[in-house]
Simulated assay, not measured.
Amino acid sequence: MAEPAAAAAGLGRAEPGGAGADPLLPQGENGVDGRAIRVGTRRSQLARIQTDSVVMMLRELYPDLCFEIVAMSTTGDKILDTALSKIGEKSLFTKELETALERNEVDLVVHSLKDLPTCLPPGFTIGAVCKRENPLDAVVFHPKNCGKTLSLLPEKSVIGTSSLRRAAQLKKKFPHLEFRDIRGNLNTRLKKLDEKEDFSAIILAAAGLKRMGWENRIGQEGGCSIPVAVNTLLKDGQLYLTGAVYSLDGSDSLKETMQTSVSYPHQNEDGPNDDVQHVGITAKNVPGQAQEAAENLGVELASLLLSKGAKHILSVARQLNDTR
């Protein structure tokens, strides 16, 4: 199952500019009060690569504006000796950036969608989503296991991952393997894999490896803090949404797919729903009816999974995770 999203998203304040304003860009020709537009980002190399690409696109669209990148460390970057699912705090990789945005220390921030909290802070909106990168998971093997697959690894081989969702899915398919938490940025995790004997392989996002130029390390393709997964497909005006939940050991799971039409014409005149935000997203170029249909599809799929026992599976998973 793919990551919830492997795309970059621009987060901004929803209120400036009034109806019809671009939530990501300041009004006027020379930025905010004549100064550069400040773009917030995490300090990690991968985050900088992602943010640099977004700023490059913005510069092409708005060549008369100046952009300044403001990098900072987040809670998730600083706490590296504890599993993400045990830290017990939301917005691990976004909180400091959100605070800076709220204090007007930056004008917009760039995140991976998978790092955003389920509910955005009041007054914030996702103003742009870049084209999605490869959403799949990737297996990176220890050099001694080069050429192997997960199914060919010896019994009790240890696989590293910081995601409960990834571990739960893989336990279901590869019960002979053991899974252990591994923290750090991509550089750190690859160093732990290559220079030690603790892990036979680690699971990473294919998107991150591609952005770093490390696609050659991919040996096999496949909110990280709970064992849930979602994938979408848009084809011929139909939106297909697949959702799944897993027990921590992978023995129990639910997976369902639903679809809905999102083929609606653009309205030429302003209507009463033009400024309605769906799940914290401002999408001026997507008809309101299509946004509403997509949001309703997500709610209906969640309700279907809950009716089939998803809540019990997740409750047990949380209890087991808390006792680890």
Rank of each mutant, 00 (worst) to 15 (best):
G222K: 02
V316E: 08
A47C: 05
P63M: 08
L24V: 14
L241R: 00
V140D: 01
G213Y: 03
Q220R: 01
I69T: 09
A293P: 02
E68C: 09
G288P: 02
I182H: 01
T51K: 07
C146V: 14
K114H: 09
K86C: 13
F199W: 14
G237S: 09
C130T: 13
A83Q: 06
E178I: 13
A207N: 01
K90N: 14
C224P: 05
S53F: 10
E221M: 15
V39P: 03
S251H: 06
A14G: 05
L314G: 05
Y62M: 08
S253W: 04
L58P: 02
A310L: 02
I69E: 04
G184A: 03
V106F: 01
K114R: 07
C130A: 14
Q267I: 12
G219I: 11
A168K: 00
M1C: 10
I69F: 06
D236W: 08
A14R: 00
S251C: 11
S225R: 13
P154K: 06
Q220N: 06
E89Y: 08
N104I: 03
D198M: 12
E60L: 14
L97W: 02
L209A: 12
I37R: 02
P265W: 08
S112T: 05
T149P: 02
K284L: 13
L80P: 01
